[in-house]
Amino acid sequence: NKASVVANQLIPINTALTLIMMKAEVVTPMGIPAEEIPKLVGMQVNRAVPLGTTLMPDKVKNYE
């Protein structure tokens, strides 16, 4: 099972992601793969992401 990116804290809307905000966890359904964490640093979320929520591609601005 592959790990996904999960919010390590509440991430407010329009916040630029940092390493400390994210952790890798095996979750269902799968979100953004954990190996993409370095790519996500500096990207902004387009909505608030509660603690423990899986980061889905549609929650990150300009994620492809």
Rank of each mutant, 00 (worst) to 15 (best):
A7G: 04
G42V: 06
V27P: 02
T54N: 04
I32V: 03
T15W: 06
A16E: 11
A3L: 09
N1R: 11
K2F: 12
M43C: 11
K23W: 08
L55E: 03
M43F: 10
G42F: 07
I37M: 12
V6D: 03
Q44V: 14
V49F: 06
I11S: 03
L19N: 08
E35A: 13
P33L: 10
A3D: 05
N14W: 14
V45K: 02
I20F: 12
I37F: 03
S4A: 04
N8Q: 11
L17G: 05
A48E: 15
K23T: 10
N8T: 15
I11L: 03
M43D: 03
E36D: 12
P50W: 06
V49T: 05
A7K: 05
P38E: 10
E64R: 12
K39Y: 14
A24L: 06
A16V: 14
G31H: 01
I11Q: 01
L19T: 09
N8V: 11
A34D: 03
E64G: 13
A3R: 11
T53L: 01
A24I: 08
V26H: 12
N14K: 06
R47Y: 12
S4F: 03
E35G: 11
K23L: 09
G42H: 02
A34Q: 03
D58L: 01
V5W: 01
G52H: 05
I32P: 03
S4P: 02
I32F: 05
M56Y: 09
T18Y: 02
G31W: 05
P12R: 08
A34W: 07
N8E: 04
V45D: 06
G31Y: 03
K2A: 13
E25A: 14
G31A: 01
V27G: 03
D58T: 05
N62S: 08
L40G: 01
G31F: 04
N14P: 00
Q44C: 14
V6M: 01
K59T: 15
V60C: 04
A34N: 05
T53M: 12
S4N: 01
P38K: 09
L40P: 03
L19D: 08
N14L: 09
G52E: 04
I13E: 14
L51H: 13
K61R: 12
L55M: 06
